[in-house]
């Protein structure tokens, strides 16, 4: 019988439409400097963006492998046409690569191969996770809205004891995906002629209510949290619940330093308060949130001391 893998950090795929060179250099730096175990690479949000990173993908992949990172290739979350499906088939053709399925169709195509179930596939419970594991999933990245109580209940079921479980612990949370492009709409454009305006906002575009309160963020066809999720203080409880992988979402802030903080808390070599204060400096003018894990509204910040 396999045991749960040792705790480690992962870096989710870049959800934003970064300039191709910026994208490449970001991962070169991650390869060279970041203490991260697994790096997910690839376009998840919009099929139209994919061609931009393709010229750099092989080089980035190689550099990360050389730096001893596990590399998992992420795939589209919303697949709507036969063409997009064909593209997925071509993408996963190489049997030596490991993929993250972000739609059940991709999971189906990857059956019998080792693969990761990404957070865009609904895996809420042991029944589903066990079923997916039997079809080749070795890791499941869980939905962001699960509370610690739910994660603990999940960790206690026999069905998941051999599976690596991942939780999103840093960054804007992807909350919804649509056929409609909100970045294009915000600029009075149609999705088909979007001019890639989503590229103007390397961390997504915050939207506000009519009362000028920050509300959500948009990233092309994706809607995200306006706050950045941060589960620094919750890492010990997550480990105790049986979570072994902790996903950081890439942002334009110093991700190498973000990884240092999370790693230090995982290793218990820094006080949580100090790590939180330093994270606050790194992210700058952005509110942090951890409500989901505490069974509350995802946008809320719950003080650990209050529990």
């Amino acid at each position: 019988m396999m045991a749960r893998p040792a705790p480690g950090l992962t870096l989710g795929p870049t959800l934003f439409h970064w300039d191709a060179e910026r994208w490449r250099d970001f991962y070169f730096r991650i390869a060279d400097e970041a203490d991260i175990e697994t790096v997910y690479l690839g376009e998840v949000v919009c099929a139209k963006r994919r061609p931009f990173i393709l010229p750099h993908l092989a080089k980035v992949h190689e550099r990360l492998k050389k730096a001893d990172k596990d590399v998992v290739l992420s795939t589209l979350a919303l697949i709507m046409t036969a063409d997009e499906l064909d593209e997925i088939r071509q993408t996963i053709a190489d049997p030596d690569l490991i993929f993250e399925a972000n739609d059940i169709s991709t999971a189906s195509l990857l059956a019998e191969r080792r693969h990761v179930i990404g957070p865009f596939v609904n895996a809420y419970n042991e029944g589903t996770i066990n079923y997916l594991a039997k079809r080749g999933a070795y890791r499941v990245s869980l939905p962001a809205e699960l509370s610690l109580d739910m994660l603990e209940a999940l960790g206690q079921t026999d069905a998941v004891k051999d599976i690596s479980l991942e939780v999103q612990v840093f960054g804007r949370l992807p909350l919804a995906i649509s056929a409609r492009c909100y970045h294009a709409r915000a600029h009075d454009l149609h999705k088909d002629g979007c001019q890639f305006v989503c590229g103007n906002d390397p961390d997504g575009l915050t939207i506000e209510t009519l009362d000028d309160e920050p509300f959500l963020a948009i990233n092309g066809t994706q809607t995200m949290s306006d706050t950045y999720c941060s589960l620094l203080a919750e890492l010990p409880a997550l480990m105790a619940a049986g979570i072994d992988k902790f996903r950081l979402w890439p942002h334009s802030c110093d991700m190498v330093q973000v990884a240092v903080l999370f790693k230090d808390v995982l290793n218990d070599t820094i006080a949580v308060e100090e790590a939180e204060a330093r994270l606050d400096e790194i992210v700058g003018d952005v509110p942090l949130a951890n409500g989901y894990l505490h069974g509350r509204e995802g946008r809320l910040w719950v003080e650990a001391a209050a529990e």
Partner: peptide
């Protein structure tokens, strides 16, 4: 009134770091 108030308020402002709730 709306356009006046919108024009004068900063578009991005810092939300409170903690929206603390008691558990």
């Amino acid at each position: 009134r709306q356009s006046m108030s919108r024009g004068s308020s900063p578009r991005r402002r810092r939300a409170p770091r903690t929206l603390a709730v008691q558990e």
